[in-house]
Simulated assay, not measured.
Amino acid sequence: MMMESRARSKEVLKRLYEGVNNVLNRVSFRYEVINFPIKYRERSIDIVANSREHGTLIIRVKDLMHVNKNEAQDLIKSSLALDAIPFVVSEAPEVYENIVIEREGVYLVNLKTFQNMYSGGEDLIALYKRGELFVRVDSEVFSKKRTELKHTLTSLSSLLNISRKTLETYEKRGGNITIETAEKLASVLGEKVVKSISVQDLREEFVSRAFREQQGLVSSSAVHIKNNIKKLFDVDESKIYEIRRSAPDYIIKDKETLITVDVTRSRGYSMREILIKTGECVKFSKITETGVRIVTDDAEKAKIIRDSFSAIEKKDLEVIKV
């Protein structure tokens, strides 16, 4: 029974990976699959993608709906460091089509929703958070229809029982609205006044609450190591993002963004793991256009790493012996 369950899980994951990759290829993303840690269940980041038009995505692919705290923290912190959107793509039955679920600060979608967000289709996509569904107001349609119908903001406020100040915001900047409010607006201004939550909307929302989410993401056990990284790279602590379940150990967001790997003896990595981890960080850095810095206190390991990646320029990958 357990073997059958694992086989089904692998099949679902394979289909999800293929589906996500197809979407990324179709809309001209550059992307890499990140295979560290080696065991799928131990990692938090599966795909890193970037395009000039759509920006950067940090993606976890899951057969289940559950997003654990460690996964969420890594997705949030890497997205903060890289100006990205954190997505979890899942085919769990509870993840409905055309609904983006905000869970643990990241965005959970099924494959069809992920496809639709980049297809430019007519399907209405809503955001589910804090127990409510939200869509967007189209500010241009709002203004045009209000003018056509010869409504002032005051008369519209009275008709809809929505404050004039709120309606003024909708007309100037749009914004997220509940389904109840969407139905009110559509009843007077027409259905086109309501539009889908877009990828750009998610990006703006994530950024707006990013630093609130960042509070409490620092583990006390990492403070000593983080202080060492702070001194070594001469950066403020707020610019160091610790990643616990992926190839990078830290992402440093300063004048230049650096993918940092700590392979000092205290970490306990084997030489094989160090080389795999470094290689996956190089893949990560190619997509995010960042440099890789490997920190080690072992001269022999430093030499092996340098020799193994000698084809890569020093500006892109540097081994630092401490």
Rank of each mutant, 00 (worst) to 15 (best):
S5E: 15
R8A: 07
V12M: 12
E18C: 14
V20P: 10
V23N: 05
V27P: 01
S28G: 02
S28L: 03
V33R: 13
K39V: 04
K39D: 06
Y40E: 04
E42L: 01
I45K: 01
V48T: 02
V48I: 10
R52A: 10
T56P: 10
I58N: 12
I58T: 12
I59S: 11
I59C: 13
I76P: 14
I76A: 15
I76M: 15
L82D: 01
A84R: 05
I85A: 06
P86K: 04
P86F: 08
V88I: 11
A92P: 10
E94R: 14
E94H: 13
N98H: 13
Y107T: 10
L108G: 09
L111A: 14
Q115L: 11
Y118V: 06
G120L: 10
I125R: 04
L127Y: 12
E140W: 04
T147F: 03
T147E: 08
T147A: 09
H151S: 07
L156E: 02
S158P: 00
S158H: 01
N161A: 08
S163G: 12
L167S: 07
E168M: 11
Y170K: 14
G174Q: 03
I177G: 08
T178N: 09
I179K: 15
A182E: 03
E183L: 07
K192V: 01
K195T: 13
S196K: 09
Q200Y: 04
L202R: 03
E205Y: 06
F206L: 08
S208H: 06
R209I: 13
Q215Y: 06
Q215P: 01
G216Q: 10
L217I: 03
L217E: 05
L217Y: 03
A222V: 15
I229V: 11
F233A: 02
V235Q: 00
S238Q: 03
I240K: 04
S246M: 02
A247R: 05
D254K: 10
K255V: 08
L258N: 00
V261W: 02
T264C: 05
S270L: 14
I274G: 10
V282T: 07
S285P: 06
K286P: 00
E289V: 01
V295K: 00
D297W: 00
A302M: 08
A302Y: 09
D316V: 00
E318Y: 00
V319A: 03
V322N: 02
V322Q: 02
